[in-house]
């Protein structure tokens, strides 16, 4: 009777062991198939951060590309227009003062 009970308990132990091993194997296989990272301890491992997609390129492309900038002719024309406008302003005495020559800077110097 006693031996029978012992055998029973040993059997159940063995079965538990088997079940555990099988479960572990299943978890490993699942992780391998789906490309997961096994982390049985549950401690932070940084994987959450590493598995994110890289978004830098998409983020950097928010502002549209200006074709105008590729054409040196157009750029030269714009530069010319800017300079001529400056010239006009200077002639009328409306140009921006040099650094340190403005109204506030003069006031501070006094």
């Amino acid at each position: 009777m006693l031996s029978c009970v012992m055998q029973c308990s040993r059997m159940s132990n063995f079965r538990l062991l088997l079940a555990e091993a099988a479960l572990k194997g299943v978890a490993e296989a699942r992780a391998r198939i789906f490309g997961h990272v096994l982390n049985p301890t549950g401690l932070p491992s940084g994987n959450k951060i590493l598995r994110k997609k890289l978004i830098g390129e998409k983020v950097a492309a928010w502002y549209p590309y200006d074709i105008k900038r590729d054409d040196p002719l157009v750029m030269a024309r714009e530069e010319k227009a800017r300079l001529s406008k400056l010239e006009m302003q200077k002639r009328r005495g409306k140009a921006a003062p040099k650094k340190g020559q403005g109204r506030r800077a003069l006031k501070r110097n006094k």
Binding site: S45, G46, K48, L50, L54, G56, V59, A60
Partner: peptide, 26 residues
């Protein structure tokens, strides 16, 4: 904002790497 974006793009990999390493408990 555009300058920020270019910088973020440039340092993205480094940032992710250091972040992940600093979070790793092992």
């Amino acid at each position: 904002d555009h300058k920020c974006r270019l910088l973020a793009d440039k340092f993205e990999l480094k940032r992710i790497f250091h972040k992940a390493m600093s979070k790793d408990n092992s």
